[in-house]
Design a protein around this nucleic acid. Structure first.
Length: 564
RNA sequence: GUCGCAGUGGCUCAGCUGGAUAGAGCAACGGUCUUCUAAACCGUAGGUCAUGAGUUCGAAUCUCAUCUGCGGCACCA
């Protein structure tokens, strides 16, 4: 019986019969402050039926209640406050964590079901920006979280490797570029052509016609055009790979837009067969006015397909290939309309599984309050941000721990970790204005703070050497200084499932900060390494904290250096 | 115009399905390293939770309206 069940049972013996156990369980809450106990039962709802003031009810309940198994049960105002037996509780939880280790918190609500996650999806020949970072790290973290909940995530990098921008790129390259230049620094030089193209096209609209012509050649299978496309794609991909390596992200599929080129005719045919395709203003659409949405443009006036056509093909392909239980798209919230349409069209096509598609939207990153724009050259290069962060981390190490052995690796872990953590710390939907100083901050509520806490815990464990605390019979720890930390460790499984249900890595990030803070407080106020009866239990606590902190960081995709 | 998202101390944000005096972190000020890593810890100061109604025993949390900001709104993705 867990502690909550114990409380429900205890209460149900003294509360009027018309209040069901489930109802009691729903009413039980956690007080804001530990001084008020570990759980509380508000008595307001009993006031009417008992014709008594809530304060009196709480007092009477406490007088009647059986206190066995608790440290104490008292009333404060209208609340009945429960204080758990610290020794027993800590003994249970610490044993569990030390036994299960990295499996602690594992759950099986997913039952192995496949969950494709559309994430990252940078555009070929453009640098990865902070926006792509968001999609990448959020998707990666969600993959790890749902994997712990028993799902099988499939990480798909839906590369932007097709479209009219390649026509522009080819024009730009032919006019202003050279092979040597591109080989030397592919992304930046390709970007240079792209930005210049847009600048010059403002004056010379005929450039746009040229670009369209080149893209048409690509679609028609022209050898020269496709050779250039293949080359750009290959160079870009290997540049992207460098960033993914640093972020520790791997993909199960790189099927991007081009992959669906030969799969769209079938989709359009099906839409037509179901009688959904209409002509409007020279284009072919699916009318969605019944769903209060603007029409889905399936084919342009010139016969070319569009974004949604491709996404329909992709959605169907993924259902056929993976037979998913859910299909996730980690894409900015400015596209929420698009996903509503996508789901609506699928539904109209008779695919009920469209309900299993979820748009995991996130807020956009701005600079000085303005949206980033590749075309205007207003980008924040992810690589620069990572480099700056790592440099700063290196500097900190030189200052604070100059004797550290693998400084460069640790600087990489800390710098990159700070950037990832910063991105995941807040709710996904929040917009944020990019501020380098804030992103690479190492103090306070940051990734490095959590990493540092873990490193200190590990340092203690290194110091004790061969004390066999892990197999000790008793890990009973009634030290009030340690109590908040113990309770937080116990909460971890609940936190993981909440993060999974909401597709919200910030739940994990916030939790890791709370646990780190709580442990740092304990650390600052208690001497852990003293020879007394409590040593085993304290070491078990330190070990448990480090296990859970490392797991939390891991779920976020952040490394946890042993020393820093 | 319309739809969506948001509005909490100087700044950045927590606040779970409504509940006990609204919490953190930065920044400011003041303390704590001969003792387990001071990337830490402790303290002080700072908020009529955008505004106005409503529901409720009880609202930052739910409903409606208003204001402000951001984003989307047919041939980009």
């Amino acid at each position: 019986m867990n502690s909550k069940e114990l409380i429900v049972n205890t209460l149900s013996n003294v509360v009027p019969d018309d209040i069901a156990k489930e109802q009691i369980e729903k009413l039980i809450e956690k007080p804001k402050s530990s001084d008020l106990g570990d759980y509380a039962f508000p008595t307001f709802i009993l006031a009417k039926s008992l014709h008594k003031a809530p304060n009196m009810i709480a007092k009477d309940l406490v007088a009647e209640i059986n206190q066995d198994g608790f440290e104490k049960i008292v009333n404060t105002g209208a609340y009945v406050n429960f204080f758990l037996d610290k020794g027993e509780f800590s003994n249970d939880i610490l044993h569990t964590v030390l036994k299960e280790q990295a499996d602690y918190g594992d759950q099986n609500q997913g039952k192995g079901g496949n969950v494709p996650i559309d994430m990252s999806s940078p555009n070929i020949a453009k640098p990865m920006s902070m926006g792509h970072l968001r999609s990448t790290v959020i998707g990666n973290s969600i993959a790890k979280i749902i994997s712990k909940l028993g799902y099988s995530p499939i990480k798909i990098n839906h590369l932007g490797d097709w479209g009219t921008q390649f026509g522009k790129l080819i024009v730009g390259y032919k006019k202003w570029g050279s092979e040597a230049e591109v080989e030397e620094d592919p992304i930046n030089n390709l970007l240079k052509y792209y930005v210049r193209f847009h600048k010059e096209a403002e004056e010379k609209p005929e450039l746009d016609d040229e670009a369209r012509a080149w893209f048409k050649k690509m679609e028609d299978g022209d050898k020269d055009a496709l050779a250039l496309w293949t080359w750009f794609r290959k160079l870009s991909l290997s540049e992207f790979q460098k960033v993914y390596d640093r972020l520790g992200v791997e993909f199960d599929s790189y099927n991007g837009e081009a992959f669906y080129n030969d799969k769209m005719d079938d989709v359009i045919k099906t839409i037509q067969e179901k009688g959904l395709l209409e002509e409007s203003r020279g284009a072919e659409i699916v009318d969605l006015s019944a769903q209060d949405l603007s029409p889905a443009l399936i084919r342009k006036t010139d016969g070319a397909t569009l974004y949604i056509t491709r996404d329909l093909a992709a959605a169907i392909y993924r259902k056929n290939t993976y037979n998913f239980v859910k299909s996730l798209y980690v894409v900015g919230s400015e596209q929420s309309e698009h996903f509503k349409k996508l789901k609506a069209v699928l539904k109209m096509m008779g695919y009920d599984w469209s309900d299993d598609i979820h748009h995991i939207e996130f807020g956009l990153i701005t600079t000085n309050g303005k949206k980033l724009s590749t075309r205007k050259g207003r980008v924040i290069l992810l690589e620069n941000v990572l480099n700056d962060a790592v440099d700063l981390a290196k500097k900190q190490i030189e200052e604070k721990n100059p004797g550290l052995e693998n400084k460069d690796q640790v600087a990489e872990d800390v710098g990159v970790g700070a950037v990832i953590f910063h991105d995941l710390k807040n709710e996904r939907r929040d917009n944020f204005d990019f501020n380098l100083e804030e992103v690479v901050r190492f103090e306070g509520e940051t990734g490095p703070y959590v990493q540092y806490t873990n490193a200190r815990a590990l340092s203690i464990l290194r110091k004790v050497g061969d004390v066999d605390y892990a197999s000790a019979d008793s890990m009973s720890l009634s030290d009030p200084e340690a109590w908040d930390t113990i309770k937080l460790i116990q909460e971890f499984p609940e936190i993981v499932s909440r993060a999974g249900e909401k597709y919200e890595p910030s739940v994990i990030a916030k939790y890791s900060l709370k646990l780190a803070k709580s442990f740092n407080q304990y650390y600052a106020h208690s001497k852990i390494l003293t020879e007394d009866d409590g040593l085993n239990a304290r070491l078990a606590l330190v070990k448990s904290v480090s296990i859970v902190l490392q797991m939390s960081l891991n779920l976020l995709g952040v490394n946890a250096p042993e020393e820093m």
